[in-house]
């Protein structure tokens, strides 16, 4: 796999979300997004069996 490029990801994802990034903010957003990667890695590398549901539950009867 090619090394991941946070700049391309941030620009494209922002475009998909119709979230314009002002030139003054773009570098900070890329820096913050790049910070997510090692954090996410910790979560993603942990094996979970498919029986584990996401934590939030939905109550059909308020």
């Amino acid at each position: 796999m090619q090394p991941w490029d946070p700049e391309t990801y941030v620009d494209q994802m922002a475009q998909l979300l119709q979230l314009p990034l002002h030139p003054d903010h773009r570098a900070g957003v890329i820096e913050n997004f790049a910070r997510f990667l090692p954090i996410a890695q910790q979560v993603l590398e942990f094996p979970l069996p498919p029986t584990v549901e996401p934590a939030p539950t939905f109550d059909p009867q308020p």
């Binding site: 990801y9 941030v10 994802m13 922002a14 979300l17 979230l19 990034l21 903010h25 900070g28 957003v29 890329i30 820096e31 913050n32 997004f33 910070r35 997510f36 996410a40 979560v43 993603l44 942990f46 979970l48 584990v52 549901e53 996401p54 934590a55 939030p56």
Partner: peptide
């Protein structure tokens, strides 16, 4: 506030799969 803005903007771009995995991990951890 510049102290929150770039983090909020970056947070909007997170892939759904990461968040769902984090929520599944939350149940395991509980």
């Amino acid at each position: 506030d510049p102290a929150t803005r770039d983090r909020f903007l970056a947070g909007a771009l997170l892939p759904a799969s990461w968040i769902l995995q984090a929520q599944r991990f939350r149940r395991w951890y509980r």
